[in-house]
Design a protein around this nucleic acid. Structure first.
Lengths: 358, 358
DNA sequence: ATAATTTTCTGTAACGTTTCAGATTATATC
DNA sequence: GATATAATCTGAAACGTTACAGAAAATTAT
């Protein structure tokens, strides 16, 4: 079979005398005595290239450490091999950004994709980075967080058929890839664990964001839990959307001094829990005795802070992995309904590891 | 002057009938009745283009929302307009990654640069991502952390004259751009504040990384502080390099139970402080009474944890900004010695804001 | 008015890749 | 042995940009 090599005559093709230069298809073509087209196809295992040739070309490519020029591919095909992570640079739940980044990177590391991080400050329009990426075609897919029940970004990208995945769900009748923590299940479990401890008057500090979808899931789970356990909800009025932790602490203090304070509180982030604990303790009440606190955390630290806090963990790194897988598969054309996943609250085992000290 | 427009004849040039397509130089050239070369130059204010033409071209470009195609520029010029942030995905000091990213992004937002994040897992060779970026030319500059006193990455990039900036200094006789927190000043200030409170036997938990440069700076400041204040160092033997926080807690407990325990401890990260406090309290000793603790933190949370801890802040977002500015200027050819900066410990004001609750 | 000079503009080529439409060679068919 | 068919391979063109060398027009000098 095709054993005769095509020996190139001297000067038949411009010899790429590239010493130290990065090898290109031309380099390989020259070395193999083939055309660049053939090489290009051989490297991607095209069926119209002979097996022997493919092996030969691939061997050469491997030997000289050929790596396709991203700009060349991108210019010709429009494929960027980039995933863009778009997030709000303000609202940092402890370790959220880093773990998302690391989780996504774990998946992308085995692909040709690079990860571009595109933060936007809260005073800017959240649509702006989205439009930019779409209009300039600077990524093949987008991962975004801070999802809202009716999210214009989701509408825009869906309308334009641009691959994306959201951290969090929407409620707008559009099927799209997402990964979400099951906050309904969390709030439900939280109520149950309080009820188990005999707590009957329960309040939930759901974070200052009824704008975000998770608020409603929490609320659903909260209600379901109350219903089943027969405990009463203690409403937190006037806790508007833009509270600092200090505000939360002070409000908690006022709140706990009112007649009939709650004996169980549910927090949706570790940050809130810290502030709420400070407020509780300012009134002289004692955690675990007078009042129990359940909190979700994304980084193992509440146990160090107050071991009495009942903790559920949300694994953000896992979310990052799921989101990365989802966009990649969406880019491949997989149906959005196949790319929706939830993760569930993990009751903390009380292990005191996790905040890396390095 | 030059008022006569060059009116293109019908069909003189291939009319780019691009409806909905992204505008390119060709589009503008067609609209302006000019050559693409002229347009290209007009957009970058080249001196050989008439002022009137420049204005006209720039107006058109603005109107139709022209944005240069990154792949085109990159292929032609080799300029990627990308900065790569290379970091260890394991060693996460609270909020370090996110704040670095946000700080860098703040600066890059006003430039054409994008930020690619390239984490590497600790089991991989730290040189690998560096080589990849250099060999594939996938960025114009690198920002990296986890700097070591004799850092092979610094040597490699310097040898290859590739722009970079490090978070942390080296001690290898190479002048390179860096930004660093003045750990010497911090350790010194920490000793002084302990001495002020009458503490005489001081130990330092400098983190498990004598491999990293900052360890030595801490040590320098520690010694200087002791010398000036006449306090004694309590050595921490057998605290080897890979301790979990639980290990730290347990070691602290053992340590504090030995005869003549320290009455002042200095921690170099908030994570360590948490574990050390837990160890101290396990022995029944009381913070602020029996022993004082000074810690550095990169996120406001120690005050919430134990208000007794004496806190100094390290502003990582600021570090990100400085590092971004440094690489950018290095890319422009500015001398490395001009691109070295330090930031100084800020004694905490005790404000209880900073952990965003959103 | 003509030549010399400056100013302003232009087409071509190249960066590295893939797609298209063929071209060449080998193999099978009659 | 000629022809059809399949299997391999190929050059040219294009993606959008910039560098180069040069052309055309306007201005100045003679």
């Amino acid at each position: 079979m095709n054993d005769k090599r095509h020996i190139p005559l001297d000067g038949e093709k411009a010899a790429p005398l590239s010493e130290g230069e990065r090898p290109t298809l031309k380099t390989i073509a020259f070395m193999a005595g083939l055309g660049v087209t053939t090489v290009s196809r051989a490297l991607k295992d095209a069926p119209e290239i002979g097996q022997a040739t493919k092996n030969r070309v691939q061997l050469i490519a491997r030997q000289i450490g050929y790596r396709p020029n991203r700009a060349g591919v991108r210019l010709r095909t429009g494929k960027t091999n980039v995933i863009s992570l778009v997030l709000n640079s303000q609202s940092e739940i402890m370790g959220l950004t880093s773990n998302l980044v690391y989780g996504i990177s774990e998946i992308l590391a085995e692909t040709p994709y690079h990860l571009i991080v595109t933060p936007y400050s809260p005073e800017n329009d959240p649509m702006q980075p989205i439009r930019y990426i779409f209009e300039t075609g600077s990524a093949d897919g987008i991962i975004m967080s801070q999802t809202e029940p009716s999210d214009p970004r989701v509408r825009y990208l869906t309308d334009h058929n641009f691959p994306f995945a959201t951290h969090g769900r929407t409620r707008m009748g559009i099927e799209h890839p997402f990964h979400d923590f099951d906050n309904e299940a969390y709030a439900y479990a939280a109520v149950k664990s309080l009820a188990e401890r005999g707590r009957r008057r329960i309040a939930m500090v759901a974070g200052p964001s009824p704008a975000h979808t998770y608020y409603w899931h929490l609320d659903d789970g909260f209600r379901r839990g109350l219903q089943e356990s027969g405990a009463a909800a203690v409403p937190l009025d006037h806790w508007n959307g833009t509270l600092s932790l200090t505000d939360v602490r002070n409000l908690t203090e006022i709140f706990m001094r009112e007649p009939n304070p709650p004996d169980g509180i549910i927090c949706c982030t570790g940050g809130l829990a810290v502030a709420v604990v400070a407020g509780i303790e300012a009134t002289g009440l004692k955690l675990g005795r007078d009042v129990d606190l359940v909190s979700k955390q994304t980084t193992n630290f509440l146990q160090w802070f107050r071991p009495e806090v009942i903790v559920y963990n949300e694994d953000i790194r896992h979310a990052g992995r799921e989101l990365a897988r989802a966009v990649l598969r969406r880019i491949e054309g997989v149906d959005p309904t196949q790319l929706q996943s939830l993760s569930y609250p993990e009751a903390d085992q009380g292990e005191r590891i996790g905040i890396s000290s390095r």
